[in-house]
Amino acid sequence: MTQKIKVSELPEFDMAEHLTSDEDIAQYLALVIDENDPALLAAALGDIARARGMTQIAQASGLTREALYKALRPGAQPRFDTVQRVCTALGVRLTAVLA
């Protein structure tokens, strides 16, 4: 007999736990950028910042931890300068290529 599992009993998935290398981060960010969704990009940068250490990224970007959490929460639409500061702090660069 198959045992039923309740959705509420499943562990919560946290992408930050799976971003263990620079290559993982670059691939994840590239996939998210291909989706062309600014809110998803903000959330992905939040995942990456949490994987690297939110306090460290906040300090390196010149933002407070609270402001960083707010700007990079799912559904957020941060200003481009915030995205740029976070990318610089993370050591990643957004580039343009012909589609």
Rank of each mutant, 00 (worst) to 15 (best):
Pro38Met: 01
Ile57Phe: 04
Ser61Tyr: 15
Gln77Ser: 12
Asp34Phe: 00
Leu29Lys: 00
Leu10Gln: 11
Leu10Ala: 07
Gly75Ser: 08
Asp22Tyr: 05
Lys4Glu: 15
Tyr28Asp: 01
Glu9Arg: 14
Asp22Arg: 14
Gly46Met: 11
Asp14Trp: 05
Ile57Lys: 08
Ala60Leu: 11
Asn36Leu: 10
Gln77Pro: 01
Met1Asp: 07
Cys87Trp: 01
Leu19Arg: 02
Gly53Ile: 12
Arg85Trp: 02
Ala42Thr: 12
Val97Arg: 14
Tyr28Val: 05
Asp34Cys: 01
Thr20Val: 10
Leu41Cys: 06
His18Val: 08
Leu68Asn: 11
Gln84Glu: 13
Asp22Phe: 05
His18Ser: 11
Asp14Glu: 12
Ala42Ile: 06
Ile48Tyr: 03
Thr64Met: 08
Val32Asn: 03
Val86Pro: 09
Thr2Glu: 11
Leu31Phe: 03
Arg93Gly: 06
Thr2Gln: 13
Gln56Phe: 02
Asp37Pro: 06
Leu98Glu: 08
Val83Ala: 09
Ala26Trp: 03
Glu9Ser: 15
Ile48Asn: 04
Thr20His: 09
Leu10Ser: 02
Ile25Asp: 00
Ser21Met: 09
Lys70Pro: 04
Leu94Phe: 07
Thr64His: 03
Ala44Val: 01
Thr55Ala: 13
Ala71Ile: 05
Glu12Arg: 15
Arg79Leu: 13
Ala49Val: 03
Arg65Ser: 02
Ala51Ser: 14
Ala76Glu: 05
Ile48Pro: 04
Glu9Met: 12
Leu40Asp: 08
Asp22Cys: 01
Ile33Asn: 00
Asp81Glu: 14
Met15Val: 13
Gly62Leu: 03
Ala71Gly: 10
Gly75Asp: 03
Leu68His: 07
Leu72Ile: 05
Ile57Thr: 09
Glu23Ser: 10
Leu98Asp: 05
Arg93Phe: 09
Pro11Phe: 09
Gly62Phe: 06
Tyr28Asn: 05
Lys70Trp: 12
Ala39Leu: 02
Ile5Cys: 04
Val32Lys: 02
Thr88Ser: 15
Arg65Gln: 14
Gln3Asn: 04
Leu63Gly: 01
Arg65His: 02
Pro11Lys: 12
Ile57Arg: 09
Phe80Gln: 02
Lys70Glu: 13
Glu12Asn: 13
Asp47Lys: 07
Arg79Ala: 11
Gly75His: 09
Ala96Cys: 01
Thr20Pro: 00
Arg52Ala: 02
Ala44Ser: 02
Ile5Ser: 04
Leu19Glu: 03
Leu41Val: 14
Ala76Pro: 06
Gln27Leu: 11
Ala96Lys: 12
Gln59Gly: 09
Gln27Gly: 03
Val7His: 08
Arg73Cys: 07
Thr2Arg: 15
Leu72Lys: 01
Asp22Val: 10
Leu10Tyr: 03
Leu31Gln: 04
Thr2Leu: 14
Leu41Gly: 00
Met1Arg: 14
Gly91Ala: 06
Leu63Arg: 08
Gly46Cys: 04
Val92Gln: 10
Glu66Thr: 15
Thr82Asn: 06
Thr64Gly: 14
Ala99Asn: 07
Met1Gly: 13
Ala51Gln: 04
Leu10Val: 13
Arg93Val: 07
Gly46Ile: 06
Ile48Val: 15
Val97Met: 11
Gly62Pro: 14
